[in-house]
Design a binder for these strands. Sequence first.
RNA 1: GGCUCCUUGGUCAAGCGGUUAAGACUCCGGCCUCUCACGCCGGCUACAGGGGUUCGAAUCCCCUAGGAGUCACCA
Length: 547
Amino acid sequence: MDYKRLADLLFPNELKSPREYEEIYPKRNLPEGATVTRIGPSPTGFIHLGNLYNALIGERLSAQSGGVFFLRIEDTDSKRYVEGAVDVILSSMKFFGIEFDEGATVDGDNGSYGPYRQSLRKEIYHTFARELVLSGKAYPCFCGEDELEAMRNEQMAGKLNFGYYGKWAKCRDLSYEEIEAKIKNGEPYVLRFRSEGDENNRVEVFDGIRGTLSLQENYQDFVLLKSDGIPTYHFAHVVDDHLMRTTHVVRGEEWLSTLPIHVQLFDTLGWERPIYCHTAVLMKMDGETKRKLSKRKDPELALEYYRKEGYLPSCVTEYLMTVLNSNFEEWRAENPTAPIDDFKFTLEKMSNSGALFDLAKFDDVSREVLLRTPAEEIYEKLAEWAREYDPEFFKIFTADRDFSIKAISVGRSGDRPRKDLVNMSQARDFLSFYYRGTFKIEDEFPQNTDADMRREIISRYLDTLDFGDDKTAWFAKVRVIADDLGFALQPKKYKKNPELYNGSISDVSNVIRVALVGRTNSPDLWEISQVLGEDETRARLAKAAEL
RNA sequence: GGCUCCUUGGUCAAGCGGUUAAGACUCCGGCCUCUCACGCCGGCUACAGGGGUUCGAAUCCCCUAGGAGUCACCA
């Protein structure tokens, strides 16, 4: 076979040479040990936790080593392209504090290793595809969908391995004349790789997370170029990551099975393989079994979910870090206020089994992060969140900034600060009792008290209430009321001899509590009263006495 | 079915041939002179199973089982 002739037939248009591309995209001039990483999302308009998870690893790796982290849009499948998806990717990443050194932007590229959209790199791929044809490593295949399906059925029936290989690779040895005739006849074709691999051979591949892997060599004649001339993921990945000088390919473990294809391609093109880092899939408990987080069943997979619920981006990254690196929590315990960037992230400490997404743990991390966040900042975040998701509350909440900040601050000072807030939508509900517009009696008054008793408690409380008191003086008065009205001063005493009392002091304070905040559970009443102010406090109590 | 990865308590996990097998979250008790939180103290619960190698195995090897991924002109 005259490969030169075949190459000219397949690629009639003028193309740059491989040499030229090597010069256009030279080795990067970076400090020793700098890593170049990237994420390569496809623009489907859906961006999920896994994307962020991998992005975070890449970003940490490159930022810590003085390397480069870039964004490449993998839009080789025109069927799945969604308008505006690039914008979604960029803004989602930005929301979580992930910045790119170079790559695709909303309206073009930033960086000298582009284009960063695969759909714009067709000629580059063709140059190297042509190169493979020239060396006899690639050939056109005219097998259509039906033929391939028939082949598959036959393989299934015979319990053979699926795929295009060996005797099944019908187009492997077509003559030049046959090919030319078919092409002139307008028959569509794909370009396949001519694999010289053997299914009994093994390849060793080093993985940055998993160590040395031993895999079955690829023996399939996989597709390089689809019939529209656009490359498959496999081919585009190899060409791009070589030319963009990627040093570490961070991606999900679903790529492990096609890894032999990729290294085979790197090897036959004579290029140095990048260090692959295959991350574990995020799992979730579904009844008794674990399963992959699914787009349809699990809203928490979509990054949008965290925005809607009002989780702070820093909470999500903080949680992801605890899942990513086993020593992160330990580090955080020792450095409670240090910025997350100070943590030295390492691939060695990464787990290679599927991490379960644990919402309880995530909420705990969020509480912790929110506690470290200044009240002013929470105010800003909550306002920002409410403006988008609850405009009514936004008005109420932002009407008096100082008041709202005071409300947020309740219980957060001292040796044992409360961790009341988890996310912004929960914070809105939690804080709602501070505002006239959202305050309502949600819980029942204590069962030990009837309406008369409640009126009595409230009226006495109102009589003795003095906003000049400190907390101790205030509570002493509550005790007096409780004692006078026959309530045990210690809940234990009441528990032991319920017949001797009307209830315990907790019933008394809960009457006041429900009157004041509308619920039986709340932070310290005295502090809340201080925030509400004397007028509002008295008004609420007076109104409750009428119930 | 082929290929591949993974397997320490309910969950996340330390552990790299000798440990009373850490820690965190959850759950359950108890304590903190008002609830709820917070905090503190305590508790439940684990090396998937079976064979080797070794004086000694959670750790090394093999087999089995379970879970997961993948087998497209999708990424």
